[in-house]
Design a protein around this nucleic acid. Structure first.
Lengths: 396, 396
DNA sequence: GACGTAAGTTGCATGACAAAACTAATCTCG
DNA sequence: CGAGATTAGTTTTGTCATGCAACTTACGTC
């Protein structure tokens, strides 16, 4: 709603040029950027010079196998590597993670530890995260400017106030992580977000300003329960208060088993990690991969457990797809580990229950096995801000 | 993604000024617009002059009860009435409607006829609509410029190609209404859309560029089945292909009755108009108001029918609210007529099943009883385009 | 009737972009 | 090997929408 002045014009075009370079698959020349952005070469040249001087873009000298085309050779442009970075952190039920990610999407430094934080005290976990963050920041290359920090949390989060309202799987209630982390961050702006939202963001964006294959999908993530996120056009729909994506508590059967959320027949009671292991007669500490192995081996209880999970997922996701017309589902977290067993039946149910399935049949895909995608997403959050307004870090 | 030139700057600020005037509750002066938009008075003045000359805004002479404040009196600005308008049409299962709506949101002319179109032939219905449209356009006041037309349809629509893919309640498949209406429209651009989407748009926007109370809500609409729409920040989420909002086919109980969509236990089988009347032991031609009357009178079957509908709505909507974090539900269509009977139980179930219900309890509100809100929404669609880029109809 | 106040207008300076001419660096072909 | 073709990038000049500040207008008030 803000007005536009000439400066905003420059800001907007600066951002447009930066985005164009970052989004490109191969390093484009100034001329290519001009063609792609429909700005003139002269304007692009001026803006690129500014971005290069500001350390956001790099001119690549490499005449990798001279193209052999006539004319003056181009000067390829890329995101500057190692000059701007952001810190991404994640508190999971089973781990802590800290990452330093730069504008190219490269991880400059990382620390990841496993830790059983179910029913833990927030203070202790955040202190551990703080020392990890300090160490990672310490190993940042010289000349690298860290522009922000993000933290992914498995619960309902109020991003405005930086407050974690409730994380049932951790047993945390009403925590403000920023206060505990401040000492390590040294005034760095911290943004917090839901783990599934941030993992989904990372899935849609392999690097700042770059978009990957599906830009519209429903993302499911889970360590103990099931979190989720809805991504439309590469943007995570966070809802009125930022609490969207609770797919784990969509009702699959009103007469189903009670859920710890107080309701009955929630998806989580069929396809949550504990629910699946329990149904398969396995111990809570068993890995989902073990469950997958047993299912493949023909273990009857394991087969029944995956089958029940797949049917519940199918019913719940069909509802979501009917309401949102987003025909791609991405399975992350523990669901990724048993994903190939679930996919066929889930797709079959979706095809049957989705009204528009006649025209576009819903697909299920499996996310990468990164143990802490939320940390990457959290870092991208801060870097995206830089991409959205590069003038902010330049000489204004 | 487009680049910004100086002209775009002017276009954007022209739109900003127009929006500011249209969105205001009381006619603002140039100075007030400047304050609200953070443009300078000089810039606003120039832009307003252009908009007034172009017939988009009007200067109101009325010094209604001179304010008695010192200083030069302001010149209040409003949307120009009767100068620009758009044609909104709707084909319902039970009616045809055509409206001419101007920039103030006023209905300049209207025709509405009841007609049983279930299982009808598209050609006949569209011919009737065409003559209605021609008559309404004929009564447009002189000097009124009709800038576009929209058509609301109860089915799955491909807006890009202007094709109605399927409207099960009409029995229509693969129809291109634009061809049949062309003669009446005389080259006017026609946009088609889903009835629920457009009704939801009209609910969020009482007039072009103006926003009403809830800007985030789930809208339910129904004549025979149940259509729906999701509105986020005043914008209807249409989904990847524009087929979002099929809340009627969210699964309430996987073991429930079969639905004509091929699935089982769809919401429509509990809360659709026919389903409710049937469960209450009433004839298909009975009005929902009659059902409401019987329920209030204590008729056991009627009570059971509304109760069952309310529970199904509660379960289905809880899923939607959990996934989208949109805590307001608007009941339209036949559900509005029995709305007061459904509301308490639906709200109770939502409070129980929505995970974030602890912090914000979901509300159910009842839409107005306009028989053809989709027609208004369809007209607004075309007018919104004018508001989004006023420069388009000005001297470029 | 002079003064204060707020609305709206006018003229000038700024600065961002487009257009077009120009320079640079390479390939190609006679 | 050199002239011409071709493409990349730069420089110069013109345009135009905005901000700024001074100005005019139209009312109230004392």
């Amino acid at each position: 709603m803000a007005n536009l002045r000439q400066a905003s014009l420059r800001h907007a075009n600066l951002a447009l040029v930066a985005r164009t370079v970052l989004a490109a698959d191969t390093a484009p020349s100034r001329a290519a950027v001009a063609a792609a952005s429909s700005l003139t070469r002269s304007t692009v040249s001026r803006l690129v010079d500014e971005l290069v001087a500001g350390g956001i873009l790099d001119e690549v000298e490499s005449v990798v196998g001279g193209p052999g085309r006539p004319g003056r050779p181009a000067t390829p442009l890329t995101a500057s590597s190692g000059r701007f970075a952001a810190l991404g952190m994640q508190v999971g039920v089973g781990h802590l993670a800290v990452r330093l990610v730069d504008l190219t999407g490269a991880v400059l430094a990382e620390r990841l530890v496993t830790a059983d934080l179910a029913g833990s005290r927030p203070g202790g976990a955040l202190r551990r995260l703080r020392t990890m963050a300090a160490r990672v920041l310490g190993t940042a290359p010289p000349g690298c400017r860290v522009v922000g920090a993000g933290l992914a949390l498995p619960g309902i989060v109020d991003g405005e106030s930086g407050r974690l309202l409730s994380a049932p799987n951790l047993g945390w209630e009403d925590v403000v992580p920023g206060a505990a982390l401040e000492a390590a961050l040294g005034g760095l702006p911290l943004r917090i977000g839901n783990e599934a939202d941030l993992a989904a963001h990372a899935y849609a964006h392999p690097a700042p300003g770059r978009a990957s294959r599906p830009q519209d999908f429903v993302y499911l993530s889970g360590e103990v329960g099931i979190g989720g996120a809805v991504v439309v056009d590469g943007v995570v729909m966070s809802g009125r208060h930022g609490w969207a994506g609770e797919i784990g508590h969509v009702c699959v059967d009103p007469d189903g088993p009670p859920c710890r959320c107080g309701s009955t027949g929630c998806l989580e009671q069929y396809a949550g990690r504990l629910a699946m292991l329990c149904a398969a007669g396995l111990d809570a500490s068993t890995t989902p991969s073990e469950l997958a192995a047993r299912t493949r081996a023909g273990d009857a209880k394991a087969r029944a457990a995956t089958r029940s999970a797949a049917r519940a997922l199918g019913v719940a996701l069909a509802g979501v797809v009917n309401v949102l017309d987003i025909p791609t589902v991405v399975l992350g977290g523990h669901l990724a580990q048993v994903g190939d067993l679930l996919t066929p039946e889930v797709e079959e149910i979706l095809g049957r229950r989705v009204l528009a399935g006649r025209w576009v049949s819903p697909r299920v895909v499996i996310a990468s096995d990164d143990p802490a995608p939320g940390a990457t997403g959290a870092a991208l959050l801060a870097l995206d801000e830089l991409v959205r307004d590069p003038a902010g870090v330049l000489g204004h």
